[in-house]
Structure formats: structure tokens, C-alpha cells
């Protein structure tokens, strides 16, 4: 039943960048993402994938339309409320990993929970759980600079999961990884999707990611050109 609940709903979502020639980066997007979906957002460069992710992730305000996350309308929240909202509801995985370079893998994961003011006991327990999930227990005391690209991205995934978000937004997560590492990372994310019923939305050009997705949404010029269900989320089986 839980998977029948939409995690993300957008209604007539638009983003227009003003200028001499206004740029319509996202045009009237109506979207509903259900719990546990593994969704790939594809399209040519400049099609509006990242802008749509930013709007869904509460990193940017829409010019028109609304975004609901787990039933709460977030596009009208103040900037500071949005930060708080992102912290507790949305996990981000970036193309360039974007870990805090001065913190160890363990501290990077713990950092988000610290911002959430979780107890030390809870933080320790969750960090260990996540390090095991991403298979980095042995590397936990290394700083990002001492880890490979794939390991860093796994830390980024663990960090995104640490806050127990409603869903994870991943912007081109495999773009900087070689094919083996990208495959391993995908395996990790697919497993998390299966085991924890975590909702993932990727913007990607990577065919391997597209091949593993349950749903592929194709954006062209800021609008949804195609929305294809290619598999049913695991819990639906």
C-alpha cells in the first residue's frame, strides 16, 4: 500500500529564466513519482533535466506551478525552511561527488545526521549500517582525497541516505566513473532500492542506468516527451 503513495507530485511546473530572450527551461511538467520507483530522467543536454531535479529537490523556485513532496507543498516554503526541508526529506548525489574534503568518509556520512541533531548513539549506529551497505567499512577513516571516484560516490550515496530521506535525487551519478565502478555503484543503488524501498530519480545519459530503471522519462525542451514504465518497482512483485 505504501508504494501507492506518491512521493513527488508536480503540477504545471515551469521554470523560465528571464533575459532578453527568456529561456523556458521547464515547461508545464506534470509528474507523479511513487514510493520505491527507480526513475531515470533522460534527454539531450539543455533539455531541462537538471533544472527539473533542482525544482523537485527544492534547490530552486519554480516560475509557475507547484511541487508536493509526501503531500507537502514545498514551492511556497521560505529559503530557510527549504534548507531544513531538504535536510530531512531529500538526499542528493552529485556528479562530482561533492563530499566535504576535510572530513573522513565516516564523518561525511555522520555530518548530515549531526545537522539533524541526532544523538551520538543513533549516528554511530546509522553510520556503521550505511558503511556496511556501501561496503566501505574498511575505508571509513579515509578522507575523500584518499578514496577512488567510485568509493567517493558510494560515500555520497551513503550520505544521501543518512538522513533517511523520502527520495534520492542523483544528477549524473555515474558520469565520472569508469564502467566497472559505475556498474558497482548501480548495483548498490539497485540493492538499496530493493531492500530499503528507497525512491531514486536520476538525471542521466548513461545507458546502463537507463537499462536498470523502472521508469524512463524523456525530456525535450523542458517538457516531458515520453514517460515509459519499463519495470514494476520490486515491492509490487
Amino acid at each position: 500500500m505504501e508504494n501507492d503513495t506518491p512521493v513527488i507530485v508536480t503540477e504545471q511546473l515551469s521554470k523560465i529564466y528571464p533575459g532578453p530572450v527568456p529561456v523556458h527551461a521547464v515547461n508545464d511538467v506534470d509528474l507523479k513519482v511513487m514510493k520505491g520507483e527507480f526513475t531515470a530522467l533522460v534527454g539531450p543536454s539543455g533539455s531541462g533535466k537538471t533544472t527539473l531535479l533542482n525544482l523537485i529537490g527544492g534547490l530552486d523556485y519554480p516560475s509557475n506551478g507547484k511541487v508536493w513532496i509526501r503531500g507537502q507543498e514545498i514551492s511556497s516554503l521560505s529559503k530557510s525552511a527549504l534548507i531544513e526541508y531538504r535536510l530531512n526529506n531529500i538526499g542528493f548525489v552529485f556528479q562530482a561527488y561533492n563530499l566535504i574534503p576535510v572530513l573522513t568518509a565516516r564523518e561525511n556520512i555522520e555530518f548530515v545526521m549531526l545537522l539533524q541533531k541526532k544523538s551520538k548513539q543513533e549516528r554511530d549506529r546509522r553510520v556503521m549500517e550505511l558503511l556496511k551497505e556501501v561496503d566501505l567499512v574498511d575505508q571509513q577513516n579515509k578522507r575523500p582525497g584518499q578514496l577512488s571516484g567510485g568509493q567517493q560516490q558510494r560515500v555520497a550515496v551513503a550520505r544521501a541516505l543518512a538522513s533517511k530521506p523520502a527520495f534520492i535525487l542523483a544528477d549524473e551519478p555515474t558520469a565520472n566513473l569508469d564502467s566497472t565502478t559505475a556498474g558497482n555503484l548501480l548495483d548498490t543503488m539497485v540493492r538499496l532500492n530493493h531492500e530499503e524501498n528507497m525512491t531514486f530519480i536520476f538525471s542521466t545519459h548513461d545507458q546502463r542506468v537507463i537499462d536498470r530503471a523502472h521508469r524512463v522519462i524523456t525530456l525535450v525542451d523542458g517538457s516531458i516527451a515520453r514517460d515509459q514504465i519499463v519495470a514494476v518497482p520490486s515491492d509490487h512483485h
Binding site: 531538504r86 535536510l87 548530515v112 538522513s163
Partner: peptide, 15 residues
């Protein structure tokens, strides 16, 4: 860039 990432992942600006 780093500040942007920190705020994006939920670090409030005061902190």
C-alpha cells in the same frame, strides 16, 4: 561551489 553544496545538502546558512 562548496558553500552551495553544503546548503544544498541541508546545512543551514547560520551554521
Amino acid at each position: 561551489f562548496e558553500f552551495g553544496v553544503m546548503v544544498a545538502i541541508g546545512m543551514n546558512k547560520a551554521m
